[in-house]
Design a protein around this nucleic acid. Sequence first.
DNA 1: AGAACTTGCAACACTGGTGATGCAAGTCTG
DNA 2: CAGACTTGCATCACCAGTGTTGCAAGTTCT
Lengths: 176, 176
Amino acid sequence: MRTILEAAERVLSKNPAASMEQIAEAAGVARTTVHRRFASREALVDAMSAWATRQFAEAIDAARADTAPPLVALYQATANVLRVKSDWGFAMSRAPSDDPEVIRVHADVEARCERLFRRAHEAGVLRGDVDPAWARRVYYALIHDAIQERDADPDALAARLVDTLLRGVGTGQGLT
Amino acid sequence: MRTILEAAERVLSKNPAASMEQIAEAAGVARTTVHRRFASREALVDAMSAWATRQFAEAIDAARADTAPPLVALYQATANVLRVKSDWGFAMSRAPSDDPEVIRVHADVEARCERLFRRAHEAGVLRGDVDPAWARRVYYALIHDAIQERDADPDALAARLVDTLLRGVGTGQGLT
DNA sequence: AGAACTTGCAACACTGGTGATGCAAGTCTG
DNA sequence: CAGACTTGCATCACCAGTGTTGCAAGTTCT
């Protein structure tokens, strides 16, 4: 089950037009087995979306974005999000699912991120003359940008991303 | 000819898996006519890439990035690039063509952009304490980000993008 | 008007993917 | 061990897209 979803992600992220046959092969399973579990190609993709969204939510939870010190939370959340977006790039790049649960999760993440940047601003991690909303916009753009670099290690990527962000809008506090 | 390329871009940017039939229909032409001009689907996409690259090069030329005042060039280049990337999003998102001409154009654009940011730095458009290379990195990320917003007017988008960039790294000179 | 060229239409063969099913072999569970 | 369940395999019908061709009608150029 999870095996198939992961194989599908692996194959479809490389070639969105890949056949069920190729997905099955990557999962080490017969094509008919895939069809038995997922009625159609569409059903498979939907299941991938749902699964990826769950992973995404867990990634944010694990970062303790609301309670950990802002800088720590920022690193942690960035690394976790990059890992999920890199592991589930295809599933998450799909047009936003109409599933209300998926929509809710994304709105929730947005809100938490906004709070985190406000906290970072107040804690002096961001320069006082920098609009937290602007910093967040740049942050999003940098995330989007980092995703493009396939194959790279999410932790290293996250470190570089946060360093890059703070070189521009940070105070240099706590960076060593 | 151009009609078909434009229709193909329109259709494929909405649905990369669209059939030749749909492309032909969008071009107001019979499917066989498309096949007479482009031997295969692959040939059509290659032609789109070549065409888009030409448009891209012209967009940069028109901005006078090397000679106009940095701020003017930045606005102009941004607007032109956004227009092309928005009009030819599908063709330009393809894996970089192996056509050496295409590679040359992209390298050339990269170099011109780097020069432009150095000029902007020296002219005081960018803050002195900001690394021009970092500013350029953020600029790229913001461009990438702006492309996502389909349907928006490229000029308005470019204005917002440059404002956003300069709010972060600019000196406020010449923004009025 | 006449020649050269382009287009639409209809038809065709071919390919590859999809989804279903029956059966035999394997695994798990009580 | 016996029954329930899952899997792989082979096979099938089906469909959509691709690429080709012949022909008739239309356009363009001289």
